[in-house]
Amino acid sequence: MTGNIIAKITHGSRLFGTTTEKSDVDIKTVFVPGARDILLGRISTSNRDGTSNVMGKNTSDDTDQDNHDLIKFMRLVEAGSPEGFELLFAPDHAHLVPPSSTWRTLQARSNEFIHADLVPFERLIRKTSTIVQVGEVEEDAARKICTLLYKLMEGTGRKKSVSPHIDDIVAAVGDPKIVRRDVREGRDGTSHDVLAIAHKAVPVDESIGFAFKLANSIATEAAANQARKTLAPEQWKHLSLAVRLSSEMIELLQTGMLTFPRPEREFLYEVKVGNVSMENVKDRLDLLAARIADAKQATSLPLLPNKETFENFVVEAHFDVVAEEFKGFDRSP
């Protein structure tokens, strides 16, 4: 990393309040390059330092440090990345060095950068909560769909669109919580009709063969979930992450800010160490999913980020560095 550090923040379990005896140290820094590097375009957007254990899992003796230049950091926030918002709202006690005036300005103007386009949150929630999102009910529904789609492929063809058969598929299952026609928002702001099956979705214009593969994968996944007697430590950690991200997303949509350590940290810790039943976690995630849907409808945040606002902040910060460093610079030969 080169340049001036504007923020150095303890991240991970120590920020969230879920540290265990095995937790390593996660540090995130944000920096502004030096004036010469800015003018010459020598900007390293991200790099990593630390003592990560490349031969296995990190231990409490290891430190991971990710370094982002200001452009990269602002792109994280603009993209709706959990990491970007977590760093932006990290409290003073999480800062390992005093925040710079640039960071303080960024915090003071945070309302200009907060938005409701939180697709990365939803993507990570789906990915990390898969273990408890599908079980016996979802398996039965997916197998009914597979049977129906298999018959359709025999008479209609594998490559035909699933669209004309959506209503029949939904009716065959009869549980809109598991299978329904739905609308998903794309990152470009457009809406897309989909057939939602458990936690996954098929665009309505996709082929019957594609829908069959998806339903079959859900049935297989559900069967594997039911066969598990216990979860691995990493799986419990993923479920804790799903709960945390869900809670963070709700708070952002409702208040435009995040609280650290997390208010739900005791429950997050119990999930992380495997002291909560999978059914309890599933119930919590179902409740949080409903609250997310309500929060998305009621939020007063801008629906999309203002790209120009983000770019202007970076330009201003870079200009200040160049102006200060080259103040009185003699350009004569």
Rank of each mutant, 00 (worst) to 15 (best):
D66T: 07
V271S: 05
L258H: 03
P99M: 08
F121C: 01
T19V: 15
P203F: 08
S240F: 01
P91Q: 01
R291F: 05
Q254D: 09
V32Q: 04
R123L: 10
D330Y: 04
S191M: 15
D188H: 13
A224I: 00
L241D: 14
F310A: 11
R265Y: 03
W103M: 07
V322Y: 01
I292K: 00
V30F: 03
I5V: 15
E136F: 07
T130G: 06
D283A: 11
I178G: 00
D294W: 02
S217K: 12
V173N: 12
P203R: 12
R36K: 09
M257F: 04
I166R: 11
L106T: 12
A298I: 05
D61H: 07
A90C: 02
K177R: 02
G209H: 00
D193H: 07
T20F: 14
D69K: 04
W236M: 13
D294I: 11
H95K: 01
M153Q: 13
R284N: 03
T299E: 11
E154L: 14
S217A: 13
K213L: 08
L76C: 01
P120G: 11
D330I: 05
L149K: 02
P333R: 13
L152C: 09
D117M: 10
R184C: 12
S52E: 14
L268C: 10
A323N: 09
P82R: 00
E266W: 10
G50A: 11
E21C: 13
V281H: 02
D117P: 02
F121I: 00
V314N: 07
F210L: 07
H95M: 05
L241C: 10
V170R: 01
M74E: 04
E234I: 14
D92T: 14
E138T: 12
E325T: 15
L148W: 10
S60D: 10
E136N: 05
